[in-house]
Design a protein around this nucleic acid. Structure first.
Length: 227
DNA sequence: GACCAGGCACATC
DNA sequence: GATGTGCATGGT
């Protein structure tokens, strides 16, 4: 196989991004619980809106496990309103917390001391927790080496010709995890850098590749696909 | 005023 | 199994 070439390419893309943007210091959040909540709130939502919601939660002092679960759902919904989908996200947050209460006695430490692969399966059974949210929780809260795949990841790496444009989540995740060392800090930074460049250069319709760090490859692929 | 954002579940074919 | 739709706020 040409695995070696692909690995080198993935590393060189990472290096180019890191040179351009430096460390992203992810996940933005002060406590594991804040990161956990942020993972749900940011579903299909810009982080600036999530920040407003989290600020509300902090101000009303409900950003702890017991207080959030004790809060009236209506009040919780009101506080997270700026992050959008506030009714469904209220349910999702409560589903997640109730899952942790039932299975791990309100303890994130206890939760992450179980087998990570098994925990991933459990998280996916919680209504409202899909693959990206589960992996974000595992990586950024639990510090388990799961590569997080998001819309930017698929967009960028399919444009680079490294994955199929219709590849499903697990396929893309395996692509990265089979070709990169399973290292938490590395996965953390790589995903954060992908989001960073995605915001600037990889809009849905027209990728803006003017000064993008992986510009040459990116432009080449875009040119190819438009001809 | 359209379009998009660090998804997910559910309905329908 | 693929494809479509509701969920909702705030920034560009």
């Amino acid at each position: 196989m040409h695995d070696k070439k692909i690995r080198k390419q993935l590393i060189s893309i990472y290096r180019a991004l890191f040179r351009a943007y430096g460390s992203q210091h992810w996940w933005p959040g002060e406590t594991p619980f804040e990161i956990l909540v942020g993972a749900v709130l940011t579903q299909n939502t810009s982080w600036t809106n999530v920040e407003k919601a989290i600020a509300n939660l902090k101000q009303e002092r409900v950003l702890t496990f017991p207080r959030m679960l004790n809060a009236a759902p209506g009040k919780l919904a009101l506080l997270i309103r700026p992050s959008g989908y506030f009714n469904i996200k209220t349910k999702r947050l409560r589903n997640l917390l109730l899952f942790i209460r039932t299975n791990y006695a309100d303890s994130l430490v206890r939760m992450f001391s179980t087998d990570p692969a098994r925990l991933r399966q459990q998280l996916l059974e919680v209504n409202g927790i899909g693959q990206e949210t589960a992996d974000s929780i595992l990586l950024y809260v639990g510090e388990k080496p799961f590569f997080v795949v998001d819309a930017y990841t698929k967009r960028i790496f399919s444009r680079l010709g490294l994955i199929a444009d219709n590849a499903d989540y697990r396929t893309v995740q395996r692509f990265f995890m089979n070709n990169l060392a399973k290292n938490v800090n590395f996965y953390n930074e790589y995903h954060a850098l992908i989001v960073r460049i995605g915001k600037d250069h990889c809009k849905k319709v027209k990728p803006l590749c003017g000064d993008c760090p992986i510009h040459a490859k990116c432009r080449k692929h875009v040119t190819d696909s438009e001809t």
